[in-house]
């Protein structure tokens, strides 16, 4: 019988403690961010989709069309198009297509890239209702950045 009352008392006490905690939290400031109006600074290592690095010296990309990124990609989302051009050693990049719908942001392409020609972008506002919006032509993107 004593246990019966003790249970009721301790149980009620735990309930009151719980209520006091939530009531206290009620008066604290919200910790959420109102996303479309406020947005966070992405951390330097944030992995957006990949993009071509703009070389400070030449003002253009560093890609040598070796295709290592394409080979290393687990999901096959990169297509590098390079062609021979007169008077230029090696191939010249004419198209760098990224199918971001397949990308898993693992970073294999960036690790495989000898000349460090690609990097992660900081893009994260990437909502769309169409699949085609996630097929990027990175070369065009780089040119538009200029």
């Amino acid at each position: 019988m004593a246990g019966y009352f003790k249970n009721i008392l301790s149980g009620s006490w735990s309930l009151i403690v719980g209520l006091s905690i939530t009531q206290k939290e009620f008066f604290k400031k919200p910790v959420t961010l109102q996303y479309p109006w406020e947005s966070l600074e992405m951390s330097p290592r944030f992995r957006g989709h990949i993009q071509l690095v703009k070389d400070a010296e030449s003002g253009t990309h560093r890609c040598i069309c070796c295709g290592m990124c394409e080979k290393g990609c687990p999901s096959g989302c990169i297509t590098v198009k390079g062609e021979k051009q007169e008077g230029v050693k090696g191939k010249v990049l004419v198209g760098y297509d990224l199918d971001f719908t397949k990308c898993s942001l693992c970073g294999q392409c960036i690790e495989n890239c000898k000349p460090a020609a690609i990097e992660f972008s900081k893009e994260y506002n990437l909502a769309s209702t169409r699949k085609e919006d996630f097929h990027y032509d990175l070369l065009k993107r780089l040119k538009e950045q200029k």
Binding site: T22, Q23, E25, F26, F27, K28, K29, P30, V31, T32, Q34
Partner: peptide, 13 residues
């Protein structure tokens, strides 16, 4: 609104 503030959110605004 109450639930939101209890949970440190803003709720309908």
């Amino acid at each position: 609104k109450g639930a939101a503030h209890i949970q440190r959110r803003t709720g309908p605004k």
